[in-house]
């Protein structure tokens, strides 16, 4: 979780799946004692491959305006992907045979990809935990979360957790066997965000578009290390601007 958060902070505009997961008390490069402790509690066996579809809703407390978006999520032993068909953005974490984790963010409209090798992630205080990346948000990683009941979702047994994440109230319905959130509701001072699992599968269903490396082969690849020297590139400028204006970031 912490690492996902670091990714958000370092790699520009946030994908909502991770936005749900962030915890306000963490900061760049600062070990969070609570998380370190709870992480040991929640360390589990390898995660099973899964393909999941979520719907995200954000409701503004004042205007009652609602934004809805679809999100796709895939995990397998060497790759974890998220994709937003609406935003034409995707991102992928990859783990190689040496255990090195790298990251790529795909901007399909711009035909660009920003790549970050392990060392570059570390330089930004990002040390991803593969298990944490694969679970989106494990309520057991949050010290303030308490299990308050059980339910059934999509034919699966689920636990209900409630508690605090920084100053936000958080409720998570957690699929115990699949180890994925079925529903996350985050109440902030200004909005309510709901992430709802619509369906999940062991194999990727037809029509669900993961990153096609044959297509992205022709994308222009940018090393994250180079962003600082590319601020006159219109694409880089746009990416940095989006990031700078994103209030949900943890810096």
């Amino acid at each position: 979780m912490k690492n996902t958060l670091y990714f958000l902070a370092g790699l520009t505009c946030a994908l909502p799946l991770q936005a749900f997961a962030h915890g306000p008390s963490t900061h760049h490069g600062q070990p969070d004692a609570h998380r370190q402790v709870s992480k040991t509690i929640s360390s589990d066996a390898p995660l099973e491959p899964v393909a999941a579809r979520y719907t995200e809703r954000r409701i503004d407390n004042k205007t009652r305006g609602t934004h809805t978006a679809a999100w796709y999520f895939w995990r397998d032993p060497t790759r974890i992907e998220t994709a937003s068909p609406e935003g034409r953005i995707a991102e992928a974490w990859a783990r190689d045979a040496n255990g090195r984790i790298s990251h790529a963010r795909y901007f399909h409209e711009d035909r660009r990809v920003i790549e970050a090798a392990t060392g570059e992630l570390k330089a930004r205080g990002i040390e991803p935990d593969w298990q944490e990346l694969g679970k989106i948000l494990d309520p057991r990683d949050f010290p303030g979360m308490r299990r308050i009941g059980a339910t059934s979702v999509l034919g699966q047994r689920a636990s209900i957790y409630r508690g605090k994440s920084g100053s936000d109230d958080l409720e998570v319905v957690w699929l115990d066997a699949v180890r994925l959130p079925a529903r996350i509701t985050r109440y902030t001072k200004t909005s309510r965000m709901i992430l709802l699992l619509e369906e999940f599968h062991r194999d990727n269903p037809p029509g669900w578009q993961r990153v096609d490396t044959h297509v992205t082969e022709d994308y222009q690849r940018i090393d994250l290390a180079d962003l600082g020297d590319m601020e006159n590139d219109p694409f880089v400028r746009k990416v940095l601007r989006i990031s700078g204006g994103h209030g949900g970031h943890q810096h």
């Binding site: 306000p24 760049h28 490069g29 920084g166 100053s167 209030g247 949900g248 970031h249 943890q250 810096h251």
Partner: peptide, 11 residues
């Protein structure tokens, strides 16, 4: 730089 800590969400 990136070392700015978000005072808005952290409180």
């Amino acid at each position: 730089g990136p070392g700015w800590r978000n005072a808005i969400t952290s409180g």
